[in-house]
């Protein structure tokens, strides 16, 4: 589904990603872990198409298409979804209006008929149940005055509504208490299928107790320095990152 080859990217003159290689197939869950400043969020932003990052080398192929050639909205139309580490507050637009606009535009771009507002609202209510979201939420302004946990839940709610092929969860666990974490993880697990894939970006192993990864990658200094199975996450939790970075530096 996603093939990242020798990806180099940065901001202005500051190169942050140095030759990232990653392949994600349908049905898989990949975790990307790493210390602060290792480039985790940059990788997420580059996949989603944030234009302040400049790609200076390498390629990203998504289902046979050159993702780097596409605008952020076109990437979304192809099925790429980024759950933001810091979701943006948009005063003046209700959650329902935002989601309706998003779904309408997505369907328009992919040649599907618009969903009647009534059906869309029903769909929203169903997905709200999945994430234990209370009534009244749809008419609130997008992320405005939301707690950290509510914002993250709102991201997963959008993911549930948009039904993407590839979801990138950027630090979705930060700012969540244990109950919220469980609800969010449960939501992600329920949305998982053999046709979609998830990249979970996280600092801590905690989230991976709930969303079990097939692969764990350690990102350090803009490179994936180690990959392994879910047990790697446990090892990182016990031993920290130092031993791997030392190992990498030796090489």
């Amino acid at each position: 589904m996603l093939k990242i080859k020798d990806l180099k990217a940065g901001i202005e003159d500051n190169q942050i990603l140095n030759e990232i290689n990653l392949e994600v197939n349908a049905g898989e869950v990949h975790a990307i872990m790493g210390p602060n400043g290792s480039g985790k969020s940059t990788l997420a932003a580059v996949i989603a198409g944030k234009d302040e990052y400049e790609v200076v080398g390498g390629s990203i192929d998504f289902e046979g298409e050159d993702l780097l050639e596409l605008s952020p909205e076109e990437r979304a139309h192809k099925g790429v979804f980024l759950s933001f580490q810091y979701p943006v507050e948009i005063p003046g637009i209700s959650v329902s209006n935002f989601i309706k606009t998003s779904i309408t535009e997505l369907r328009k771009a992919t040649g599907m008929k618009p969903i009647p507002t009534k059906d869309l609202l029903k769909m929203m209510r169903d997905k709200m149940k999945l994430l234990n979201i209370k009534n009244g939420y749809l008419s609130r302004n997008m992320n405005e005055g939301f707690s950290g946990g509510e914002k993250k839940r709102n991201e997963i709610f959008q993911m549930a509504m948009l039904d993407p092929k590839l979801s990138i969860l950027d630090e979705t666990d930060s700012g969540l208490d244990i109950d919220a974490l469980r609800i969010v993880a449960n939501g992600v697990n329920k949305l998982k299928s053999k046709n979609n894939a998830t990249i979970v970006i996280t600092h801590y192993q905690r989230l991976l107790d709930y969303i079990i990864p097939d692969f764990v990658h350690v990102l350090y200094d803009g490179k994936i320095i180690k990959s392994g199975g879910k047990e790697l996450a446990h090892e990182l939790d016990e031993r920290g990152y130092d031993w791997i970075t030392k190992e990498a530096n030796k090489k």
Binding site: D51, S71, P72, E73, R75, A76, F84, V88, S102
Partner: peptide, 8 residues
């Protein structure tokens, strides 16, 4: 960017 990443 947030909105564009949602397909808008």
């Amino acid at each position: 960017f947030y909105m564009r990443s949602r397909g808008i």
